[in-house]
Simulated assay, not measured.
Amino acid sequence: MADDDLHHDAVFLLSRPEEHVYASGARHHFDSVHAARTHLDHGDSPAIVGALPFDLRRPCSLIAPRDFRRRPGRWCRSPATADVGARVTAAHPEPEQHERHVADAVRAIADPCGGMSKVVLARRLSVQATSALSPWDLAARLAARDHAGNAFAADLSAAGSEYEGHHLVGSTPEVLIHKRGDVVSCHPLAGSAPRSTDPTADQENARRLADSPKDRREHGYVVEALASSLAPLCTDLEVPAEPTLTSTPTMWHLGTGIRGRIADPGTTALDLAAAVHPTPAICGTPTPAARDHILSVEGDRGFYAGAVGWCDARGDGEWMVSIRCADLDPDGRGLITWAGGGIVAESDPADELAETSAKFRTVLSALDIELPA
């Protein structure tokens, strides 16, 4: 299967700086991690690919493909140049309401009986295009705009009739889990600041983020939770004491590279992804309280803030956090995209709104549209 044949019967793509992975055909569909994992154990398929939802109590979309390929280097496909005529048709919630949601969350965090230290709140935009866009064309547009070539597309049909023909497409910078042999690594991102086209202002934004007590505390929750989840599964675990700056074309982030060795050789990348998801980077802490707050405010997130990735028959694989993404309708003309931010006691509603606006730029710029004021 050549890269240009992806649009025929492709079901999955993940482009990363070091390699790209794609799969075609669907031998079997699975709506749960357990069912997919059992199938993988039987050795009937080369891999499992697909997406996990934000709330693992909801159906997954996991596929045992007929054809599974790994190729060195980032995925290279020239994006279509035709104007898709996309425009934002609705915001959920409207900007002012999102600020009120943030203020409510700050009060809940400050309440000693509230049970939350952090919660990640998101808003979503509905987008309509006049010309149909395939998931692979949208992925190519996103990859072309990302300095590392990050892009993904996953068929969501395995999650049931509600998602038949839908695809999750995005360009995420965040590694949830990466496993090769007995080595596991992840690179959580939490704490963000927008990029600027002015080099001086851009470096100042980075410096402020690196020195921000609020953002460092928010980042610390994520690192602590991941280390706690991975420690029982590893013989040793390396967790740096200080975060470093990570950049995308639109955002600065605080990031920490975590690395360990798996104790049980039977533990797969899919097992690890299910064990650590959702992290405080996209949910909050403690997880049950934060998740319940999110669901009460936003409703079902679907596959936004879930995970997208693959696991081969040896147990190796990579799962990315599904942010900077969109749910593309079967007709290729409608999509929903999300952007969120971590809320802690020091959060300012106006700043949090601005952060989501900056994060929307990843998907919207690939469609040549600007976020309305």
Rank of each mutant, 00 (worst) to 15 (best):
R27T: 15
T356Y: 09
L121I: 08
V297E: 01
P173N: 04
V120F: 07
S78T: 15
P53V: 02
R27W: 01
F303K: 02
D146R: 00
D5W: 10
L133C: 07
I177A: 01
T197H: 15
R195K: 02
W136N: 04
T256W: 11
S229G: 10
R207D: 13
A36P: 02
D4S: 05
F30E: 03
G266T: 03
A35K: 04
E96R: 10
V175L: 10
G149K: 02
A2D: 15
V119E: 04
D83I: 02
L125A: 09
P249Y: 03
T362L: 04
V84I: 04
T279P: 03
G260R: 00
A210R: 14
D327P: 11
H166Q: 12
I369Q: 08
G342E: 08
F68G: 10
A154R: 02
T287I: 03
R77I: 03
E204P: 12
H167N: 03
T172L: 07
R100A: 14
G260I: 05
E164Y: 05
T197E: 15
A80Y: 12
S365G: 14
H178I: 06
T337K: 02
L295R: 02
D215R: 13
V276T: 07
A158D: 13
H166P: 05
L13M: 08
I177L: 07
F12G: 04
V169Q: 00
T279L: 03
S61T: 00
L62V: 00
E162H: 10
R361H: 01
V239I: 14
F68D: 05
R141D: 07
I282F: 04
P278T: 12
D31N: 13
E18Q: 14
V308T: 10
E355D: 12
S228G: 03
A231R: 15
A206N: 07
V175Q: 11
A132R: 09
S134N: 13
G306T: 05
S357I: 08
D329Q: 01
A51I: 07
R333H: 06
H34K: 09
D146M: 05
H277L: 08
L226G: 03
P17C: 09
L138T: 07
P265C: 05
N150V: 12
G315T: 04
E164Q: 14
L270A: 05
D215G: 04
A90H: 14
V222T: 15
S296L: 04
S357P: 06
V88M: 10
P59A: 03
R37Y: 04
V222D: 07
D9T: 11
E346K: 05
L233W: 06
R69T: 13
G85H: 09
L56S: 06
A269Y: 08
A373N: 11
P95F: 00
E370M: 03
R145S: 11
H42P: 00
Y304V: 01
P17S: 12
A206M: 08
E162G: 13
A307S: 09
I323A: 03
H39M: 00
Y22I: 04
G332C: 05
H34W: 04
